[in-house]
């Protein structure tokens, strides 16, 4: 029986060619012989889109990766397969994939424990320490997979540095940037009835402030002859743009209705303050957590112009809303 591919004369009764392995029973086999076809739309899209260039780029990237892998392998830094590379994103995942379940559990457990602890204490020294350890566990898990075969100390050090760099750029720097926007830790510097010095609060810089929310503000140093002695302070938004506000004898009225809202430190408020309408893009906040100095006489109640000047905050002066307390752990929880 002659092979249709290589013309080798095989013994009768064989299913595959002894030389090239081709199927010898093809003539009678049930096979679809109609080739797949591109639709008119597919062909048109391929003509219009930079399909060829995109393919070339894809193949060039693949070839570049293969060349880099060869180079690194020769230099003693083996580069694993893409399937393993992807699993480096989660500590221990690559170990599970390679069948090293015990190591995988160890790395994943250590990472989750340290990372969870770091998140719980986010913003504090202990939190930073735990998060640093979590990152190092992640890097160790990667290095453990990279050096499954023996390697010198220099190779390990260089690889460790490179892995930290790649993990930092790929995961931790972007994640850190995002975390400091959504949960920026702020340490309270002075004691107030609401906050104690040393407490760590989380600030969401992307949240839109609304009446009642605690906000972190950056006031101007001087407003209308008043000097504000603070870089940033935390206080409550009492009214939003367009509201008519009256603060009288410790009671807030918004649009003529009494409001339950009050500043963080009600003892340091003016006696009377009236704003016919909060301007657009401004918020009404009485800064009671800062030391305010000015050339007015408190006994004669001259405060209104000065308070008026410092109580209206432009939206861009508000850094974010304060929503969570992480330290001390005894007071851990959301803020209202």
């Amino acid at each position: 029986m002659q092979c249709p591919s290589c013309r080798f004369e095989n013994m009768p009764g064989l299913d595959a060619c002894g030389r090239c392995g081709s199927n010898l029973k093809l003539a009678t086999a049930v096979l679809d012989v109609e080739p797949p076809r591109a639709t008119a739309w597919q062909k048109r899209l391929r003509r219009w889109l930079p399909w060829y260039s995109a393919n070339r780029f894809r193949y060039a990237a693949r070839d570049g990766r293969a060349a880099a892998a060869d180079l690194l392998d020769e230099a003693g830094f083996p580069l694993p397969e893409p399937s393993i590379l992807l699993r480096f994103l989660v500590p221990g995942w690559a170990h599970f994939f390679c069948g090293q379940k015990a190591r995988g559990r160890l790395f994943l457990g250590a990472f989750l424990g340290l990372f969870g602890g770091g998140i719980l204490c986010w913003g504090s020294g202990l939190g930073n320490f735990l998060l640093g350890l979590a990152v190092s566990v992640h890097a160790s898990s990667v290095i453990d997979i990279l050096f499954r075969r023996p390697a010198g100390i220099v190779s390990r050090l260089v690889a460790g540095f490179a892995v930290m760099l790649v993990l930092g750029v790929a995961i931790y720097f972007p994640a850190g940037w995002l975390a400091t926007r959504v949960a920026m830790p702020v340490t309270v510097q002075i004691n107030t009835p609401v906050f104690k010095a040393g407490e760590v609060l989380l600030v969401n810089t992307w949240a839109t402030p609304k009446p009642g929310s605690l906000v972190l503000c950056s006031p101007p140093r001087t407003v209308g002859g008043v000097y504000i002695q603070a870089g940033q302070f935390i206080d409550r938004v009492l009214a939003g743009p367009g509201d008519r506000v009256l603060w009288e004898n410790g009671q807030l009225f918004v649009n003529g209705q009494p409001s339950a809202l009050s500043p963080v430190n009600p003892r340091l408020t003016p006696r009377r303050l009236e704003i016919p309408q909060v301007p657009a893009d401004h918020f009404f906040i009485i800064p009671t957590n800062v030391e305010v100095r000015g050339n007015w006489n408190e006994q004669n109640n001259p405060l209104e112009p000065a308070w008026l000047a410092i109580s209206l905050f432009r939206a861009d002066r508000i850094d974010g809303t304060v929503y969570f307390r992480t330290e001390p752990l005894t007071r851990f929880g959301p803020l209202h």
């Binding site: 090239c20 081709s22 060829y52 393919n55 193949y59 070839d63």
Partner: peptide
Amino acid sequence: ELFRENGDLLAGRAQALIRMGDQRG
């Protein structure tokens, strides 16, 4: 898959790949 290692078929695939930009393959 049917005619393993057939030279002309290998060349056919090579031509398809080069038209797609895969020079190395």
